[in-house]
Nucleic acid binder design. Structure first.
Length: 489
RNA sequence: GCGGAAGUAGCUCAAUUGGUAGAGCGAUAGCCUUCCAAGCUAUAGGUUGCGGGUUCGACCCUCGUCUUCCGCUCCA
């Protein structure tokens, strides 16, 4: 990462705070690491991105419906999904090499060494002891002792200078039940997907969906990241926009291809440059995946994942069928080549999963520009402008009377009342007009309308375009239509 | 988690060898009525990150602590 890009990223973070897009969480208490709050303009932008996604999924696709599942889910959900077992391993660090190990891997590797050296009994004893202390009792002090007794050393530093054993748990947990002792531990969901899977049949039956069909959901998810940095790119609390698409087994390949292409098109539909996007196909796949790729975008901090498309097979539904003992099958009435119904099966799933906060950062960082201008008298000038796509901009139209006298504010307020029904407007009569334009540039408002003395004579106003800074004279009565057209484009 | 650097007004920065904090911008109110920031007046805003120590006296020296940034480590 170059220092220029680095500075740009810092500038964007500062701008986001200064203009009410993103604040560090709990800032007056020195902040909370890897958690951020969205301010007045940030929450508008975020909502607009979410709405645009939601509409493109559930309104433009007749075979996709939405749900809003709870963040709390039955704890068994996460056993079924693999999150409990696969992502909560005890870890230990070697203080000299700074290398971090999964404790079970470290001990198993040592046992293998013992076996190679012909000390079968010792190896067996070690593994048995690990099973008792680590897996059954989860007595980390005893496991640490075990490591010391067997003089297990780090393969890099060769020392046995270990930290305490710590559990790096992906999931946050909390207690359900008002009486503490009787309370059960439940988890804050680490992904929204499982809320869709456990409701698969509810949705399919009540909305009378036929395969292939999709279920979309947006919502918060929580992950205990080991290192959380890079602003809102990696947060402990974040929002996902996910769509799980259920298909007949055997057709997953073509649907994976379809969604891989369709999702990139969605990004490009916002007018973002294709050259800033690329696919990253996964070679090493997660435990649930058959095929997977990321859509990456060139952020100021380099190419980073914004969205993932995964072919999950029937892993999730099969797991839930196994753990819940409830059939998760779909009866397919369509006829196969032999003229018979396809019959019962567990559908395969193609997942599209995009991080709303990452999309927000994408829009923000890609929109940000420090422009150098030349004034009419030849002197240098500058402005900071956010080229946010009009349909996503927090404020669509600023209504500015040139002066606050002579009846201009009255006309402006009339226009305000007309337009605010339709889209977000901002009214301001203070300060020089140039200064007001700059303030709107800084929050990405695509249009400014100025009411002047001529307006009183011929009912026209100047409309000023953010990106080009050009102005045109238009009838007052056309303003609402012009803005509406631009944001629906 | 480890190593390095930094914390003074919303932002950018001042404050002579230690002598109880200032400016510009920004904000707010008013003046001016002007189509692309930086005209005039006034006002608000700081236990100098926090806590201890040294000192007659600490933004300044010292110790601890917290936070942020950079690098390493980890990452579904």
């Amino acid at each position: 990462m170059s220092s220029i890009q680095d500075n740009k990223f810092q500038a964007i973070i500062s701008h986001a705070k200064e203009y009410g897009f993103v604040f560090p969480s709990s800032e007056i208490y020195d902040g909370l690491s890897a958690v951020y709050d969205y301010g007045p303009y940030g929450s508008e932008l975020k909502k607009n991105i979410r709405d645009y996604w939601w509409k493109s999924m559930t309104q433009l696709h007749e075979n996709i419906v939405g749900i809003d599942a709870a963040i709390f889910m039955h704890p068994t959900t996460w056993k079924a999904s693999g999150h409990v077992d696969n992502f909560s391993d005890p870890m230990i660090d070697n203080k000299d090499s700074k290398k971090r190990y999964r404790v079970d891997h470290l001990i198993e590797a040592h046992a293998d060494k013992l076996k190679e050296a012909g000390k079968e009994q010792e190896a067996a004893a070690l593994l048995a002891e690990m099973e008792r202390t680590l897996d059954k009792e989860q007595d980390y002090a005893a496991v640490k002792k075990l490591i010391e007794e067997f003089k297990i050393v780090c393969s890099v530093s060769g020392t046995a200078n270990w930290t305490e054993i710590r559990q790096f748990n992906l999931m946050f947990d909390t207690k359900v039940g008002s009486v503490a002792e009787e309370a059960d531990t439940i988890y804050l969901r680490p992904e929204t997907a499982q809320g869709i899977f456990v409701n698969f049949l509810n949705v399919q039956k009540t909305a009378r969906m036929k395969i292939p069909f999709g279920i979309a959901q947006t919502g918060k998810a929580f992950r205990n990241e080991i290192v959380a940095r890079q602003f809102i790119f990696r947060m402990r609390e974040f929002e996902q926009m996910e769509m799980q698409f259920f298909v007949r087994p055997g057709t997953e390949g073509e649907w994976y291809k379809f969604w891989k292409e369709a999702r990139l098109q969605w990004h490009l539909s916002l007018g973002l440059e294709a050259s800033k996007y690329r696919y990253h196909d996964h070679v090493k796949l997660a435990h649930y995946a058959k095929e997977a790729c990321d859509i990456e975008f060139e952020f100021p901090i380099g190419f980073k994942e914004v969205e993932g498309i995964h072919s999950r097979g029937d892993f999730d539904l099969s797991q839930h069928e196994k753990f819940s003992r409830k059939k998760q099958q779909y009866f397919d009435n369509d006829l196969n080549e032999e003229g018979k119904p396809y019959g019962n099966y567990i559908p395969y799933v193609i997942e599209t999963s995009i991080g709303l906060d990452r999309m927000f950062l994408l829009i923000l960082s890609n929109s940000y520009e420090e422009e150098t201008l030349t004034k009419e008298d030849g002197s240098a000038d500058s402005r900071v402008v956010l080229h946010i796509p009009a349909k996503l901009a927090p404020v669509k139209l600023a209504i500015l009377p040139l002066t606050k006298k002579d009846g201009l504010p009255e006309i402006a307020k009339e226009l305000m009342n007309e337009c605010k029904q339709q889209f977000k407007c901002f009214y301001e009569e203070k300060d020089a007009i140039g200064k007001r334009y700059r303030r709107q540039d800084a929050i990405g408002t695509p249009f400014c309308v100025t009411i002047d003395h001529q307006t009183k004579e011929d009912q026209t106003v100047t409309i000023r375009h953010r990106d080009s800074m050009t102005q045109e004279r238009v009838p007052l009565s056309k303003v609402r239509e012009i803005v509406t057209q631009a944001i629906e484009k």
